[in-house]
């Protein structure tokens, strides 16, 4: 048997009609989102358990992260989500050029996100705030790192740090390398998703520019959009969990 001869060229042979194909792809994409949520979920579990075990260490280690960079990245990602949504909106109305522009903006935002992430990582690598056994950050720089003088005072007052004058070393907390381990894995995996998302958006731009996507057929863009919003959604949780431990 063969499908309706009048069916458009973007309809795969094993579907009855365009709508079935669109809905199937979307369902598949959502099932994929479920697997993504659970992949990150494992890391959220590790985070929860270790934070519950070491609340003070998490608090202290969180002070070493740069809230401003995290905040900028949050804003950048939300903006990119908006432009991604608008790209779909534009293609639904067959405004291809507008859609292309919005995809481009999304791509730029993603690039910006990774750039800021790079600056953050670079700084931490430099200081030795690394995961696991590579963690070597025990120098007194910690005091210079925190910009909020009130926090420094609070920090020392509550005896969470111990400064040993003989060795000129600062013992901050128990096992901070675990915090940084979880931080790097979660933000690293998230960053990997951003990079993959950029690849997908670039691919969408090519498809849109070639006119393959239009108001009747934009499944690819819808699927990538869902993926991209998921990336945003995960960051929405990572931001307060790592940067804003009150």
């Amino acid at each position: 048997m063969s499908h309706d001869k009048s069916s458009p060229d973007f309809l795969y042979h094993h579907f009855y009609d365009v709508n079935q194909q669109y809905e199937t792809s979307k369902l598949g994409m959502w099932a994929f989102i479920l697997t993504e949520v659970l992949t990150f979920g494992g890391l959220f579990v590790a985070y929860t358990i270790y934070r519950a075990w070491n609340p003070e260490m998490f608090f202290n280690a969180n002070l070493l992260l740069d809230v401003n960079k995290g905040l900028i990245n949050t804003i950048v990602l939300i903006a990119s989500s908006l432009t991604m949504a608008l790209a779909i909106w534009a293609i639904q109305l067959n405004k291809r050029k507008l859609s292309l522009l919005m995809l481009f903006l999304t791509f730029v935002c993603a690039l910006g996100f990774l750039g800021i992430k790079y600056l953050e990582y670079e700084h931490k690598f430099h200081l030795g705030q690394l995961p696991g056994e590579y963690y070597s950050y025990m120098g007194p720089e910690v005091v210079q790192e925190i910009h909020d003088q009130e926090k420094i005072n609070h920090y020392i007052e509550t005896n969470n740090i111990f400064f040993d004058k003989e060795t000129n070393r600062l013992y901050t907390m128990n096992n901070p390398h675990i915090f940084f381990g979880i931080y790097f894995i979660m933000t690293g995996l998230h960053g990997l998703h951003v990079a993959i998302g950029m690849g997908l958006i670039a691919w969408l731009m090519v498809l849109t520019a070639r006119g393959k996507l239009h108001a009747r057929y934009y499944t690819h863009m819808e699927a990538v959009g869902i993926f991209w919003h998921l990336v945003d959604l995960i960051w929405i949780f990572l931001f307060p969990l790592f940067y804003l431990i009150g």
């Binding site: 809905e23 479920l34 949520v37 979920g41 989500s81 819808e222 869902i226 959604l233």
Partner: peptide, 23 residues
């Protein structure tokens, strides 16, 4: 984000079920 950007509000309710299920 899920409701509006990801279009769950207007989608087949199965998709929302999957998402809530994952959580």
């Amino acid at each position: 984000v899920a409701t509006f950007f990801m279009h769950l509000l207007w989608d087949d309710k199965k998709n929302a079920t999957i998402f809530v299920g994952s959580l």
